[in-house]
Amino acid sequence: MGLQSLTLHINGEKRVVNVRFADTLLYALRGNLGLTGAKPGCLNGDCGACTVNVDGWPMKSCLMLAVEAVGKEVTTVEGVKGEPIQHAFVENFAFQCGYCTPGFIMNCRSLIQHHPDADDAKVKEWLESNICRCTGYAEIQQAVKSVINKE
């Protein structure tokens, strides 16, 4: 099968990966780079568990080919170190099983960067793209708001 060698910018590093043209970014991150923080949940954009940031925007990595990420800055949850939203999720018990958490954190992080004073409607517009099956969302709401209100 034809493999293509690409250089991707991931978490501030240049990484060389050998992928098929058809491989998604999610597949390359997990299978080629061992970055398993982005989770497969549906592979068609329904659940948001694989959300990463691409040039600062939230992107479902199952909906993007690895080759499309060339020349873009990709940040995965592994590249997010000790940011307020992570502490807020911990302190507010905003996860249980934790499977959807990396996706939520990457989405929230981008939301806060783009809309540091987001109101409830804006938060809902952004976060309704991700599914959490364990919590009832109240804790996630508290976590996000705690960071928005601080900034």
Binding site: G37, K39, T76, V77, V80, V90, F95, G98, I105
Partner: peptide
């Protein structure tokens, strides 16, 4: 396991 779950280190 809280910090593992917000940093992508938690493994399934």
């Amino acid at each position: 396991e809280a910090y593992d779950k917000v940093s992508g280190r938690a493994k399934y």
